[in-house]
Design a binder for these strands. Structure first.
Lengths: 133, 133
DNA sequence: CTGAGCATGATTTTCATTGTCATTATACCT
DNA sequence: AGGTATAATGACAATGAAAATCATGCTCAG
């Protein structure tokens, strides 16, 4: 007989509750420090684990802000496709749409440019997935 | 008298040339390994330095693919604004546009969702910048 | 109550990136 | 050409974030 999923994952829930109460997109360490300040006894490792599992289950999202570890020789603005299966990134031959900036400028932001990434399956991985099923 | 900018930055140019010849958005280490395989005598630190300076000068771009180090409690699709000055990230109250996916689907990709980030100055930083000038 | 399996904390390990520093190369001036 | 200031490079150390490991303790079904 299978063991049921434990409902009592106290620390994980505390991490989730803390994150739900904020709008500043914190890192694992920032959440950890806040929780400790609030008197919660929790370890940094648990915060990392909690966030990872919450993100895997889709209860929490990670930010789509650019990291600096992969480079693109094309500086002309263009969009990307990110394959969730093979992790490759493709340059897309689509027109850049500066008019998208207008909407956020109406909210008071001064927009220099934007980045747009589509996530899904590339043609090769669609093929592979089809064969497996 | 000022010293002029040096034109001869051999290794940096080799890094740039190698990157220009690829479409696979490599990391610093991947570029380093390729260069060594091609017989280039170069150190990993130099590749990192070259890429960083090329990116700062805008000769090369970094990828806008999501890293996993900042978390967002809102899983409903929504867009973000990233302030280039204070580095804060704001959730934007804008409608999600699934119709954007159509264009990349025409190119053969299977799109699950997309991420859109606007980059510029937030209202507070626009104010600060105005005062400095 | 008991024990199998999961959750947690403490610690170590890994690995990517950056910093440091000594050395070499280059450009500018005389 | 020679001298020197400055930049570029390489080798290595240091840093730091994230993950892995491992021992302990908790939970729940029986």
């Amino acid at each position: 007989m299978k063991i049921m999923l434990r409902q009592e994952r106290g620390k994980r829930d505390r991490v989730l509750q803390e994150l739900l109460g904020r709008t500043d997109h914190p890192t694992a360490e920032e959440l950890y420090l806040t929780l400790r300040e609030k008197g919660e006894e929790i370890s940094l490792a648990t915060v990392y684990r909690a966030l990872r599992s919450l993100a895997e289950e889709g209860l929490v999202a990670t930010l789509p802000i650019a990291p600096a570890d992969r480079f693109d020789p094309t500086t002309r603005p263009h969009y990307h496709f990110h394959c969730l299966r093979c992790d490759r990134v493709f340059d897309l031959d689509l027109p850049y749409k500066p008019e998208l900036d207008r909407a956020s400028e109406k909210l008071g932001f001064s927009v220099y440019h934007h980045t747009l990434v589509f996530h899904g399956l590339c043609p090769a991985c669609q093929e592979k997935t089809r064969r497996v099923e």
